[in-house]
Design a protein around this nucleic acid. Structure first.
Lengths: 350, 350
DNA sequence: ACGAATTACTAATGCGTTTTACTAAAAGTT
DNA sequence: AACTTTTAGTAAAACGCATTAGTAATTCGT
């Protein structure tokens, strides 16, 4: 028979505090331009606390016209692409800043074709104030939509460089490739194989990296040999298969650069199953420095990327954009670091 | 000088279609009880398409009183806990069903103490319609809050068993432990070490698993020996350290069960650095079957968990709950599968 | 000491939906 | 033919906040 305590609203807070709803809103949102006395502010806060008041976000968004959600949109060809710690780390980084700055993270996956209208519905449906996008394998449709929305002025930050007009926080992957391939060259290797990502035309990033690999070789006076290049698809399986194929070459490479760590591990397995040893017969290097890289046999020489920082910086940039502060730079690049372990054989000669 | 085309609203759709806003709402939401003629429905749909209408989600939530977001709340002691593919896989599974059923995913991390009010603000602030929770290491505060909200009838599904009153979709971890430890026993091992998670009192799950390990041993007539047990913290580093410590024992174990794969890899590295080989001197098994497990030296014997299904089932359950359909079972358990590779030595004797 | 500026508020409107209650016309029922 | 029911809609009231324009009281400048 007792009256259910109606849900706490700003109106009820106002009544209890003996002020208007307007004042409650001003206090709770710390509106500077409204001059609220200390005493009133205290009363409002007290009333809100007493009623256990939590503002209705839907009402707030509707009234203010802005959302406090951002989206992390991950465009990938296939669920299987989620093979390493990249996304968890990015999420950790982003979350650190969204939490501090009062935003929430909406995660959306868009696979090959499906879910292609997600950009539109998120923005136009006012679900989010901005988005950070990750293109594992950029599809034309995804990139075009993102570029268009970015040009319209919507807050978008990409985790890789996609277009001059799209803000980005990216890893200097090409610099990393240069470091690690040069490292192999310095160790005296002349026949350096490569396991790249999907064939060039479908993945511009991979293409760029392959190009750097080639340039480093040529700068060192080594002729580029396309018979030493294979294409994988991010996961250990394809690294394994690519290496099996390389091992059929008449003249084997003495070193291998794999475009990511998990493919490198697949390759190492293939090499060992073939009766050869790493790094003695074939030196191997990877890319990413996943946490397991130091705990394998042999430990993997690779390139470290600051993923958590990456996420954090992208989020800071995005929220600046949302709040109308122009970020200092439109494109931020984070440096990689070469991590030398056993798989490259550097320590054999030390 | 041209008039900016005002944002498309349901009102404008109504005008263009020559019907009332109510009708537009009925058509767009497929309200059965409203009898809308085919002709009218067509006109509304056409008008919506022409205006490129996307409903304002904030307004929709406010008016209807329900959100179409669900949260994935991950309670973990420390960012470093994100070491494997679990979360990406869960996310993939959840996303498959949220997409099909018209929901979005909000991801929230809650670390040790901080962010503790996230449950309250998400629910009370009407930001979400329900949540799936993952307790990596359950803290009393987190568990209590979740249990309370679940008892109030709020839609919550946990990814592990936390309380009889909280719906759950979980992996039968204990069954997996039984499988893999029995496997070692069958191979003839009598001194089987264990690398568990953080000390028992702070992690009930780990405690249960340790207990199963002990029971399997005792059932086989092997006395439990606490000097063969060490505690790690999810990551390869602590697996490595735990194994180093075990290697100082006067009498070494002949086999090791690590509670997850990455700690197993840390342990293998320690064993090899100590001059011993796996599985010859010490057999090693892990848990999780991460994708790299097959591509290491030696490939790891471990227990496979269907993570993507896990996420999918949890999400189905949650959305059923949200939509008022009682799920068939309150607690669903998914089976694990023993994956035998080289690290346990089973093939040595084959 | 008198108008101007500042301080500390409030009333009322609007945000874009959903939903309830209502209605006019058409179809069924006996 | 006179009701009742069904069909196909509509008008108007929420939903809970932010925000704009305004006001009365106080302080300031000279």
């Amino acid at each position: 028979m007792k009256n259910k305590p109606r849900k706490a609203t700003s109106k009820r807070v106002a009544e209890l505090a003996g002020v208007s709803q307007t004042t409650v809103s001003f206090v709770l949102n710390n509106v500077e331009s409204a001059n609220i006395s200390e005493e009133t502010r205290r009363r409002v806060l007290e009333a809100a606390r007493k009623l256990d008041y939590v503002p209705d976000m839907a009402a707030r968004s509707l009234a203010s016209g802005r959302s406090t959600n951002i989206a992390l949109v991950i465009a990938q060809p296939h669920p299987q692409v989620f093979v390493d710690e990249f996304i968890p780390n990015i999420l950790t980084g982003i979350h650190q800043v969204t939490r501090a700055r009062g935003f929430r993270i909406l995660v959306e996956l868009v696979e090959d074709g499906t879910n292609a209208d997600v950009y539109t519905s998120l923005f136009r449906g006012k679900e989010i104030a901005g988005m950070v996008v990750q293109f594992n394998v950029p599809s034309d449709n995804d990139v075009n939509q993102v570029v268009n929305y970015a040009m319209e002025g919507l807050p978008i930050v990409s985790l890789s460089d996609v277009h001059p007009e799209v803000h980005s926080a990216s890893i200097n992957k090409l610099g990393g490739v240069r470091q690690v391939v040069k490292h192999l060259v310095k160790l005296g290797h002349r026949r350096i194989g490569c396991i790249s990502y999907a064939p060039a035309k479908t993945n511009p990033h991979a293409d760029d990296r392959l190009h750097v690999y080639r340039r480093v070789l040529e700068t060192a006076g080594i002729e580029y040999d396309s018979s030493l290049v294979r294409y994988g698809a991010f996961d250990p399986e394809t690294g394994y298969e690519a290496m099996q194929s390389l091992l059929k070459e008449a003249s084997l490479p003495t070193a291998l650069y794999a475009m990511n760590d998990v493919m490198a591990f697949g390759a190492i397995t293939a090499i060992q199953e073939h009766g050869l040893t790493v790094p003695h017969d074939i030196a191997v290097v990877g890319f990413d420095d996943i946490r397991l890289a130091r705990y394998t046999t042999p430990p993997l020489t690779t390139v470290y990327e600051p993923d958590v920082d990456h996420g954090r910086i992208a989020a800071e940039m995005l929220i600046d954009l949302i709040q109308g502060k122009t970020p200092a730079q439109k494109h931020i690049q984070l440096a990689t670091r070469l991590v030398i372990r056993q798989s490259c054989g550097a320590y054999l000669r030390a």
